[in-house]
Nucleic acid binder design. Structure first.
Length: 849
RNA sequence: GCGGGUGUGGCGGAAUGGUAGACGCCGGGGACUUAAAAUCCCCUGAGCUUUGCUCGUGUGGGUUCGAGUCCCACCACCCGCACCA
């Protein structure tokens, strides 16, 4: 190879991308006898442009996929598009384009961007969720779940934007106003479709235990979200003691409450119901209605809840304590939630902070029923409730019991009385999947006045979205589309109407990994093919999906297993959540306003940053997540243009551990680019005919191969990168030899998963056969992994005094003698008496005086 | 409030209880060049009375021959959930 040619990514990148495509290098063959490996990154929403965060995500997956291929696996590494969603409709409203056209243009553009980065993807399996050949199968699955009783309709309260005429997700309501229209959001009751995820609450919780290769953080978040709590549901008998007779009629005789602390029942000093509880609603008084309205007005932001005062309204009835017979006052309280438990509580101020604050405010008794020990039954409270462990006191037959024993005893007695039962309550709610939106999967149901809700016949699928829609009128265009809407009832043949709601886009992403595994025309997937590839061996994506997407996908997989369509129960064997790409910000005060500048408008010096336009100094702000508003974004296309795909990929893997944030910097990418060219110079100096051994270099090479393999398998890309730098330095310094030539060949292979274009170019230049992408991972000779000489630390009382070189495996006595011969050590000991000698073979000698 | 995480040079970060700071970036010095770019070499935690010594991994304790690593308490920052009975 000639050493004066420079590596030119602008021609080499495309050349090798074409070579892989022609050779179908990354096409997954499900009939291959090799062990299967399914590597998947969370598929993108086609917003228009690839973001640098995508590049980091896909680069990690790509390194793993290429490594898996090199180590003898048949790899499935697909890519697709999570293509339904609101931005397409917003674009339609703002720019007058069709959501479909907008989305498909974006996909085309982003696909070209991804191809420029040289990802080892099987594009033959590409899918987009907005195409009928995807969502039609989703409709079939939805009907199958309906037939299995896992889909139902229920009237439920939604956030309604009266201007945009649509339902808003909670995240889209900002300070009580619609995020787009700014209109005051109304609560409306609408018939909505639900998936019975709560049927799987126990399974989804227990399944977390088997997901050993998921981050603990994600498992905990899901655990908390599912929110299992064990307790007791029981009823109080109500009497309208303090209520005028004419108001008492609507009050029920009993009031069910739920508690997780039945052991503290003797400490109950009042009962409280939520503002929208039927008992509260039944009170026929202006004051009560006023109070209820006040409760509803309360904000739900963190800050408001933190400072919100506990407020109550005594409704003048009493609840009879099931054991003491005492009459407890019943309040409407602003801190009781209707949608958890029964919407009513027994309040134990001594052992619940909220109840404590309430009781303090309204002068209610605060009895102690749990104490550190029996002799402390009279201990006063120190300004707050004590929620911890202890022994039960002041509680009749429970006195002296542990909290756990007392819980069991109360549940037993309440059940014996027929007054209630031990119960498990979940925080998890059923999944509402209705969206009053156009750009989503049409829910395949038909409303018939005579027959009710009827599933669309299977042979009518896919039910496709009509193309002739307009977005200039607010609201869901499907509702206004009379010809699309009108349909004959499949049951009675009479006039009927299609459902106009579409499915939440999280449904689309709940099974796409199954469709990647096999794509038959006549059904969503082939169970046998799914069994070959699933579960996904490594799933990589952002932490922001820790709960919703990852929980929904787990649920959907279990639901499909439940109805016998697949065997696999957990879709993702290993999960990795990568950090964000961050960048410092550049800003300057201009006329009292902070103006941000993009990195390419700035020339960055060591200590300061100047605006290119006028040479003025701008303030360098914190390193934060890239966002358009702070202008601290870099565009993947631009940097690939400047540095080539390999330098960008290398940067994505260098320095920061993959789970942490990666600060983007101009200096950093330039360093990576320098390294690409440095490697190229080294590869260009390859001499296939060089003679002679270099044992030390052989060792370094083999050690590096083994270490890089371990690092990649553990996704420790930053460490693999550091080792490759080390080996590069060692090879550069070595004199020509057969060993050095072998080391260069090996180095090409080690960088191939990370810098595939450079590696192919070098591989071809060295006259190697085939593509490096098809080459097996270099063999490691275990004998070369161990050094024959080691450096021994010589310590005095644990402090380093000297180091010495000894043969590997030297005897303890020899090491001790060598250490004691050290002049530096002797100077430190200074004639003191040696009390102890610790020798760790091959590591150190520590002299204790 | 509850749950979880993180804290190491100027910066990103290495380090099975065993030589702290690998590797990269920034910075400094030098070589090559008419010059620049590119490249190469050397230095680069702090301090000191500099053959060497002392200090040093958020703070304070502890265990150990030996602690960035293990234990206890605290501080700061980040993330998730949140009036969930």
């Amino acid at each position: 190879m000639s050493s004066d040619t420079r590596f030119d990514p602008s021609s080499a990148d495309a050349r090798w991308q074409n070579a892989w495509e022609e050779a179908q290098t990354f096409r997954a063959d499900s009939d291959s006898p090799k062990p299967k490996s399914y590597v998947l990154e969370m598929f993108p929403y086609p917003s228009g442009r690839i973001h640098i965060g995508h590049v980091r995500n896909y680069t990690m997956g790509d390194v793993l996929a290429r490594y898996k291929k090199a180590t003898g696996h048949e790899v499935l590494h697909p890519m697709g598009w999570d293509a339904f969603g609101m931005p397409a409709e917003n674009a339609a409203m703002e720019k007058g384009v069709h959501p479909g056209g907008w989305t498909r243009d974006n996909i085309e553009h982003m696909k070209a961007q991804l191809k420029r980065l040289g990802f080892a993807l099987d594009w033959s399996r590409e899918l987009a969720t907005c195409e009928p050949d995807y969502y039609g199968h989703e409709q079939a699955l939805f009907i199958a779940l309906y037939e299995a009783g896992l889909v139902y309709r229920k009237e439920s309260e939604v956030n309604w934007d009266p201007v945009d005429m649509t339902v808003l997700a909670n995240e889209q309501v900002i300070d009580g106003k619609g995020w787009r229209s700014g209109a005051e959001v109304e609560k409306r009751k609408l018939n909505q479709w639900f998936l019975k995820i709560t049927d799987f609450a126990e399974e989804l919780l227990e399944g977390l235990g088997s997901l050993e290769n998921w981050p603990d953080k994600v498992r905990l978040m899901q655990e908390n979200w599912i929110g299992k709590s064990k307790g007791l549901e029981f009823s109080f008998d109500l009497s309208p003691t303090g209520l005028p007779a004419n108001r008492a009629t609507k009050i029920p005789e009993t009031l069910p409450v739920y508690t997780t602390r039945p052991d503290t029942i003797f400490g109950a000093s009042f009962v409280a119901v939520a503002a929208d509880h039927p008992v509260a609603q039944a009170i026929d008084s202006d004051e009560a209605r006023e109070f209820i309205a006040l409760c509803k007005r309360g904000g739900t932001t963190a800050a408001e809840l933190e400072t919100a005062e506990k407020l109550g309204f005594d409704i003048g009835i009493t609840a009879k304590h099931p054991f003491t017979g005492a009459d407890l006052p019943v309040y409407i309280a602003n801190f009781v939630l209707m949608d958890y438990g029964t919407g009513a509580i027994m309040a134990v101020p001594g052992h619940d902070q909220r109840d404590f604050e309430f009781a303090t405010k309204y002068g209610l008794p605060i009895p102690r029923v749990v104490a550190p020990g029996v002799e402390e039954a009279g201990k006063p409270f120190d300004g707050e409730a004590e929620a911890g462990e202890g022994v039960i006191v002041n509680s009749d037959f429970l006195d002296g019991m542990s909290v756990e024993d007392a819980k069991r005893e109360i549940i037993r007695r309440i059940e014996e009385q027929g007054r209630g039962t031990g119960k498990t309550v979940w925080r998890l709610r059923d999944w509402g999947v209705s969206r009053q939106r156009y750009w989503g999967t049409p829910i395949p149901f038909i409303h018939c006045d005579a027959c009710g809700v009827v599933p669309a016949p299977k042979d009518s699928l896919p039910i496709t979205l009509p193309e002739d829609v307009d977005f200039q009128t607010p609201g869901n265009p499907l509702v206004r589309h009379e010809t699309w809407k009108q349909v004959d009832c499949p049951k009675c043949g009479g006039k009927a109407e299609r459902e106009t709601d579409t499915l939440d886009t999280f449904v689309d992403s709940s099974w796409y990994f199954l469709r990647f595994a096999s794509q038959p025309d006549d059904r969503p997937f082939d169970a046998e093919e799914v069994a070959k590839w699933l579960p996904v061996e490594q799933y990589i994506g952002g932490i922001e999906h820790a709960i919703l997407h990852l929980l929904y996908a787990r649920f959907w997989t279990r639901a499909l297993a439940h109805i016998g369509q697949i065997e696999v129960k957990e879709p993702f064997a290993s999960l990795f959540t990568q950090g964000m790409v961050t960048h410092e910000t550049y800003s300057r005060k201009e006329g009292g306003k902070t103006v941000y500048y993009a990195p390419d408008e700035i020339s960055r010096e060591a200590e300061r940053a100047l605006l290119k336009d006028d040479g003025g100094e701008v303030e360098i702000g914190r390193v934060i997540k890239m966002s358009k508003s702070k202008k601290n974004v870099v565009d993947p296309d631009t940097i690939v243009d400047s540095y080539g795909a390999d330098a960008v990929r290398w940067f994505m893997l260098s320095d920061s551990p993959p789970e942490r944030d990666l600060p983007w910097s101009e200096a950093g990418i330039e360093g990576c680019s320098r390294f690409v060219h440095r490697l190229w110079r080294l590869f260009s100096a390859y001499d296939a005919g060089a003679q002679g051994d270099d044992k030390a270099l052989d060792r370094k090479t083999h050690q590096t191969v083994a270490a890089v393999a371990d690092d990649i398998e553990a996704l420790g890309f930053n460490k693999a990168v550091a080792r490759i730098y080390e080996l590069t330095g060692a090879v550069e310094k070595a004199s020509p030899s057969a060993s050095r030539s072998a080391a260069i060949r090996t180095l090409v292979q080690l960088v191939a998963p990370m810098m595939p274009h450079l590696a192919e170019e070098a591989w071809a230049g060295m006259g190697m056969e085939g593509l490096v992408a098809d080459a097996p991972w270099p063999d490691v000779d275990p004998a070369l992994l161990v050094e024959d000489e080691v450096t021994i630390a010589v310590q005095h009382k644990g402090k380093l005094r000297d180091t010495l070189t000894a043969p590997k495996g030297a005897a303890k006595e020899d090491l001790e003698a060598m250490a004691l011969a050290s002049e530096k050590l002797q100077r430190s000991i200074h004639g003191a008496e040696i009390r102890k000698v610790i020798v760790v073979p091959d590591r150190l000698v520590n002299i204790v005086t």
